[in-house]
Design a protein around this nucleic acid. Structure first.
Lengths: 212, 212, 212, 212
DNA sequence: CATGAATGAGGGTTCATTCAT
DNA sequence: CATGAATGAACCCTCATTCAT
């Protein structure tokens, strides 16, 4: 029985993920409110009603997706930071991971980011079950910032950063630059050349942060 | 009679603007699709049906608002550029205008920006009457970029910019930084200290662009 | 004052009729429910609100129009019947009047006829003020039948009719034939050749009623 | 599984037809534009939204109904024509079928006929998906005329028709007479005596067409 | 009287969610 | 678990009618 249960759980998880894969695609194209469950279901090869066997509602699908995606991203980022490396080296790796991630799997991020802003005004309306998911997501979102902060602080200690701006601000700026690139991609309807974007970003950052 | 007509037009315009003011508030909070006409109407002190005396549909309300806001912004930006001034001087003025504008009048900008991305995938579905409004808006949106480009190119000619990045990219980065600040404000639920933001931005840009 | 009152009444009547002229055009094209007051007003050169200075509501416009038109028709029919003439002569005149009338002024009749059928199921819902108008119309509608019956009975007395069908039925059939022609015109989008229609009708009737 | 699918399709078709039955009742009473989906739904024992599981919109309900009804009618008419029989025999059968059909199942026909006229002015506004349904209906509508024409032409060949009117016109007249009877029924609120109507019609036609 | 503006009362349609099988 | 079907709750938009000027 234990084996059977495991197998069943395995299958269930697999199907859950198929749904999230479908959801990512649709949410990325249309955003949260424009996305219809019907579309996700079709994309996933399920019927609309079946989605409810895996997630309790649209919001949970969205948040589960967001959490899953950020987990993946965080995992990649976690192994990437190398204290002994130079700031720009670390950011080059971070940019590569983040841009390829957002580009390939996550045009959805723009939606998410707007959604995140939206959520701040929504807490009252959200049911209790959802607050947990929401907070989980916020924590992950913040971890990315912390990852950047870690890189920055580490570089500051090693005197690699000359600019007289507090680390928080620098981190926000870097986040903004990344988001701006994703945004441009979204408008153009497709990813650009990642390596070129990385080079440009590094050039800009090097000038801004390092060479003073 | 001419006087009477003028007065009537004046009143009509005033009411149109009251509606747009209400629309701005609601769109800023909820975004386009989540916004209900009922809310705009109530906020404006009208009945829902009355909105249709001034605008032909929801889309037109949104685009009229976007165009009105961008007109105001463009007007402020137009008089601000001074070729003889230094790059940072020009950007300081631009930041002040844009940030105060977006802060006070235009939390709505995030919505707009997403909407703009959305529109790229929509052109087929939009009715002919609306395409005009949409293009009008796009033109205005692009003008802001051109304004920035003008500042940058002017500075480049005067050798104020050292960084080896093409002007377009620099302009996108600056836009991203501004948008990032607005975005943070939105999440925090209110504007931050504009002068401090400007100082930080200028510090960052000075380092990035000027001192190499 | 009396003169002034008369002049005012004259003007008022003229304007009322302008509205009805406009109403006839629109009702003829769209039918009762599809017609919007706005269209009638525009067609008449008034604002929508002004219509209410002349008629209390849409229904009254429609019924007033129907009554006015039928009055005109009845007037023309009244002077047309000549007892000493042969059945076919009388019907030739009737056809000419009715067809030209319906064609020129009254494609609206199809609408009316459907409306009449509709009214039978409506009496409960109609307000008291309107029942008078409705009955007035019904009376006029019936008068046309009586006019036809008169012709038929007269012909029967003079032994011009051979067919063994009661006069009522014959009258209904003739009405149906006329209505059928109007109906075809409506579908084709315009009147046909009246004289040819009359000839065909007379040929048919002659054969049906007279020559047995 | 094939069995299950068949059963499901059977049920689905049955429900579709229940909706059309309800629609027929309401459309017959109120006409197309005056009919509210809510009423059809209630009459059919569904919620308004459920109708959309079977038909994509109001127009499709109407046209599906019209097509279904005309299919039934055409089927009955198809087997009825017997070339060797006399004109009056054939028309007697046709009248019986048509009158009983329109009486029992099809008070709705008057609405349809007006709708048909309406459609001629509408083609531009109708969406592409609907044009197919509309044309399907028109074809069926025309087939009835052709059925009558077939009877007439057959009789003409056998010299059973004396009257010097082209067959088209005769067909239109017969259609008009039938429609006139339905129309009277509609006004009276119920069917009359079919056999008596048929006798009268045959008597009239015999006199008009045959005995010259 | 004329009219621009306001609005209540819907009407068709959509969609997340529930239910029965 | 899967799903076709059912539905309540909105939402956008329309229009006859009213009102203030």
């Amino acid at each position: 029985m234990d084996l059977k249960e495991k197998r069943e759980k395995f299958i269930r998880d697999a199907k859950s993920n198929i749904i999230l894969d479908a959801a990512r695609k649709v949410f990325a194209e249309k955003g949260f409110h424009q996305t219809r469950l019907e579309e996700i279901a079709t994309e996933a090869g399920f019927s609309k009603a079946s989605l409810y066997n895996y997630y309790s509602d649209k919001f949970e699908i969205f948040m589960s997706l967001a959490n899953r995606e950020f987990d993946l991203l965080l995992e990649k980022l976690r192994v990437l930071f190398k204290p002994q490396e130079h700031l720009l080296e670390n950011f080059e790796n971070l940019f590569r991971v983040v841009l390829s991630f957002f580009g390939e799997h996550f045009a959805f991020v723009v939606t998410t980011m707007n959604f995140r802003a939206m959520c701040e005004n929504m807490q009252v309306e959200i049911e209790k079950d959802h607050i947990l998911l929401l907070n989980e997501f916020k924590n992950k979102f913040n971890k990315i910032n912390k990852m950047q902060l870690m890189i920055i602080e580490n570089a500051r200690l090693k005197n690699e950063i000359k600019i007289d701006l507090d680390d928080e601000t620098v981190s926000v700026y870097i986040t903004s630059l990344i988001r701006g690139i994703i945004f441009e991609w979204k408008i153009r309807g497709g990813m650009g050349d990642i390596e070129k974007e990385i080079n440009n970003l590094l050039l800009f950052l090097k000038s801004a942060l390092v060479c003073l």
